[in-house]
Amino acid sequence: MKRDYTHISTEELLQDDFFISSIINPTEETQIFWERRLADGNIDPEVFREARNILLSLNRAPHRTDVPEERIEKLWERIEDSVNGVRPASRRTPAAKRWMWPAALVASAACIAVAIILRPLTGPDNGTTTINGTDVRTLAHTEDTNYIKLVLGEKVVEMPGDEARVDYSRNGLTINEQEIAGQDREQGKLNLLAVPYGKRSTLILADSSRLWINAGTKVIYPEKFAGDRREIYVDGEVYGEIAHNLAWPFVIKTKRAGIEVLGTTLNVNAYEKEEELSVVLVGGKVAVTNAKGRKSELAPNQMYFSSGEHDYITAVDVEEYVSWKDGNYKFRNEKIATIVKRLSKYYNINIVADLSTSGLTCSGELILKDELIRVLDVICNTAQIQYTWDSEKRTYMLHR
């Protein structure tokens, strides 16, 4: 029976049958239940978060959680005392490596324990490439085309034009406002949206989270989210407005890092073929865990940046990083080489800046729907440089 959780402690919550069931085998009803209690203040958010993370850590070993190991150990000792009256001899085993439940929890949720053992969960996490047990890299290596492409299992839909809108938020699937017949959503089934260079798309996921997908980007995601977390994989750049649900975290996985978000607006730039990764937080809360397991939390108007072995957090003007979703490119004191690198993706043509421009920076705003020649004219007039076209290499070269 569902109880009053207003003044419940972490250890009491960990002995609550309904809580255990709803975290291990979440349903839409239980997710709404906890979301409402968190929103109404009928449960302490820190108590809920800590109990949830400890519960999930039981079968995530050796993956890390954001709850200190000493805290987990002390809580389990107190729970074991209250359940068994004595402490088992094995209680000194590090909490992160526990694979056994206190006896009362096993008795009240035996079927849940079996489900966990059969399907161990992964951490939130350090850039792993699996969703629902599937290695997404097998999907990501789809053949590149000049069309925006949606891969639905054995079915492939190619979309002409420079932009597309794919929407899973209704009962079925719609592409550019047209419903795709016979496409019933399956829980956990992975789809791939591949956006080639020179194109852009909008993707509305099953939970109503909205992604703006930049040129040269692939996104892998479930048709319908399953499990305790909403997980997607990104190779490229996306701007996201993530549906708020404290009880159901949203995780963006990339090759180099995992990004856990809670009702967040952010921009992620993580092209697999490039060394750099950046996460810019517009609003909300986000935590980035790098490949070594180090976790960094961002505040709004901050950017997490990593390249090779180095990473840092810095304050930024978010408009410079997210304006592309509205068809603009804003920049301030940006290197010419960086500007043309981004333009190469937007326009799907090779543009380079030679060494004579290496010390030059530029500030301004470009309209990405303009013809490329007009955009290059604006840059060159501002920076007092020139460009030439190499027809053999099919490359624009910017130089002094």
Score class of each variant (00 low, 15 high):
Tyr321Lys: 06
Pro249Cys: 03
Ser108Phe: 07
Val86Leu: 14
Ser363Gly: 10
Gly359Lys: 05
Asp390Ile: 06
Gly85Asp: 13
Arg210Gly: 10
Ala299Cys: 04
Val151Phe: 03
Ser306Gln: 15
Leu139Asp: 01
Gly123Thr: 03
Ile32Ser: 02
Tyr387His: 15
Asn84Gln: 15
Arg92Lys: 11
Lys273Cys: 03
Val86Trp: 06
Lys199Cys: 08
Asn245Gly: 11
Asp311Ala: 09
Phe48Ile: 06
Arg119Val: 05
Leu246Met: 04
Ser169Phe: 13
Gly161Val: 13
Leu193Val: 06
Ile336Thr: 01
Tyr197Ile: 02
Glu186Asn: 12
Thr202Trp: 13
Ile148Met: 02
Glu143Phe: 12
Asp135Asn: 13
Thr10Arg: 01
Tyr312Asn: 10
Ala257Phe: 02
Glu11Tyr: 10
Glu186Gln: 06
Thr314Ala: 14
Arg78Gln: 15
Val114Phe: 09
Lys292Asn: 15
Ala291Leu: 10
Ser90Ile: 09
Asn126Trp: 00
Thr254Cys: 08
Thr30Tyr: 02
Val157Gly: 04
Ala206Ser: 10
Glu241Leu: 13
Ser307Leu: 06
Arg294Asp: 14
Pro68Leu: 01
Gly188Met: 13
Val83Lys: 02
Glu272His: 14
Thr265Leu: 00
Ser90Met: 07
Ile252Glu: 05
Asp40His: 12
Lys393Ile: 05
Leu105Cys: 06
Trp389Phe: 13
Gly240Asp: 01
Asn171Asp: 10
Val157Ile: 13
Ile204Gln: 07
Thr388Met: 14
His63Gly: 04
Gly364Asp: 00
Tyr271Trp: 11
Asp390Arg: 15
Arg394Tyr: 10
Thr254Glu: 01
Asp66Arg: 07
Arg256Pro: 00
Leu398Trp: 05
Asn214Gln: 01
Leu193Ile: 03
Tyr396Phe: 14
Ala61Ser: 08
Val279Ala: 14
Ile204Gly: 10
Glu29Ser: 08
Thr264Cys: 04
Arg60Phe: 01
Val151Thr: 11
Glu158Thr: 08
Arg87Asp: 15
Pro62Glu: 04
Lys292Leu: 14
Lys149Asp: 06
Asp354Met: 03
Asn245Gln: 14
Val279Pro: 01
Ala315Asn: 11
Arg332Met: 13
